[in-house]
Amino acid sequence: MRRIAPYPVLADEVTLTVHEVRLDDVPLPYESTVSERDRRIALHLVGKDWSTVRLVLRAAAPRHELEAGPWKKAAFVATASERRTNVHTAVKLDWGGPAEWVGEVELHRDDHVDRVLISGHLVATVDDVEGRVIADVARPWTVDLQANSPTPRDEIAVRWADFAKVPQLKRHEESPWTVSVTDEAPILYLNSGFEGLRAVLTGTKASDRPARELLASQIAVSLWTTLFNEAIRHVEGTDWPDGWRGMALRRMLPDVFPERSPDDALREVGRGTTAPDLPTRVLHAAIKQAKAPRSLANFIRSLQKTGSEDR
């Protein structure tokens, strides 16, 4: 996808930084709250009920390009939006120096449940038309209300449970593992009542490694297949689903439809693909996610090594 503007725009993008996070006017420790690298803010508010969060923002545009161009009355508008609640907030920041703007975005607890995207646009008067977008934020921020660490929740949760003793899992008592999906997160449950499963998966013996990895990748194949099938049920039109579903699809679709761009692949899925080989394609993508060929090859090699003469 390429964008084209019918009027002059900046070639470069705007850098948006978060300088402070205040929770009901109390500044939060920066290090444990803000991850600049991942552009994330984690509100791990232990036991504290809060009502508002203020983010102190600073936006910076390429000064020379901006000053040399045909734009007038340049201003920066910060935005806060959450897909799940469909709340969109826009705040015009104050002038903070040449090609810089500062200000605060306020989030209300009642408006948000999960992840809020903090971004913005550089707007200006072009050809006598006011408020035209001439640049976007290079790397938007995410405020994660659930996370307890600013590094992203980019792993699927794994829990050990004795299936026989957990009512919700009792049905799967005989399965070594199962996957449960909710809107928040998928959870992989490993059956601690399945004899030996824990020994295999958590063992540290080098000689057992091929078998351990083989099992892990088998679990992963079934996990990714389940996640994909669950996620595509939530695809509507051309929009990527929220949360883990979108993330799972972004990882899987390039392998499901390698000849299509991710957006094109999503569109294909969104209009109810007619590809008759979809299950096969999904299996292929899951095998790839699970790195199954590598672990199987290692396992087979280990069999050849240990299956030697024995008396």
């Binding site: 992203p152 929740r153 980019d154 792993e155 699927i156 949760a157 794994v158 829990r159 050990w160 449970a161 004795d162 992989l188 490993l190 601690s192 998966l201 958590t202 351990r212 990895e213 892990a216 990748s217 679990i219 992963a220 996990l223 883990w244 993330m247 799972a248 972004r250 990882r251 390039p254 439809f257 390698p258 000849e259 299509r260 761009s261 094109d264 996610q289 699970a290 790195k291």
Partner: peptide, 27 residues
């Protein structure tokens, strides 16, 4: 009962986005 994901599974369960391929297989 809950001592976290076995290390061997962890790397197969990442949801974080993978970098786009340098030479994609699609136009």
């Amino acid at each position: 009962s809950d001592d976290g994901p076995p290390a061997v599974l962890r790397e197969l369960m990442g949801l974080h986005p993978t970098p786009p391929p340098r030479r994609p297989g699609y136009p």
